[in-house]
């Protein structure tokens, strides 16, 4: 869960995606195979080695208008192909805060 802001070298240990925040509203998005961004993790392109990750990140960063702060994040791919976030940070980014929000409780 080390902050990806401290991500210095691109070295991945398993399936990963590129994630960022959409520029105009800041919501969490994932890079898709169609070279676009989606809020749906299941639409993210999965990379499995460092070279693929580097290439995907470079392409994502170049799309500066669509999303900001792109970085590589781990995911878990189930036997059924279902993609889930690979750590707590990414789980929180995907599903929201783990606490009740004051206006909703």
């Amino acid at each position: 869960m080390t902050s990806p802001l401290e991500q210095k070298k691109i070295k991945i240990a398993g399936p990963s995606v590129v994630t960022a925040n959409r520029t105009w509203d800041g919501i969490v998005v994932y890079r898709t195979a169609a070279k676009s961004w989606s809020a749906d993790l299941s639409e993210a392109v999965i990379v499995r080695n460092s070279d693929e990750a580097k290439a995907l990140l470079a392409e994502s960063v170049a799309d500066d208008v669509g999303a900001v702060g792109a970085y590589i994040a781990p995911v878990q791919v189930g036997d059924d192909g279902k993609v889930e976030p690979g750590n707590l940070r990414e789980q929180i980014r995907r599903t929201g805060v783990t606490i009740g929000q004051p206006a909703q409780v």
Binding site: S3, L5, R89, I92, V97
Partner: peptide, 17 residues
């Protein structure tokens, strides 16, 4: 904490709660 902050490594608010 980690519920909101991009710098955080761990959650603070649930501990406080």
């Amino acid at each position: 904490g980690l519920d909101y902050c991009s710098l955080a490594n761990a959650r603070s608010i649930p501990i406080a709660q």
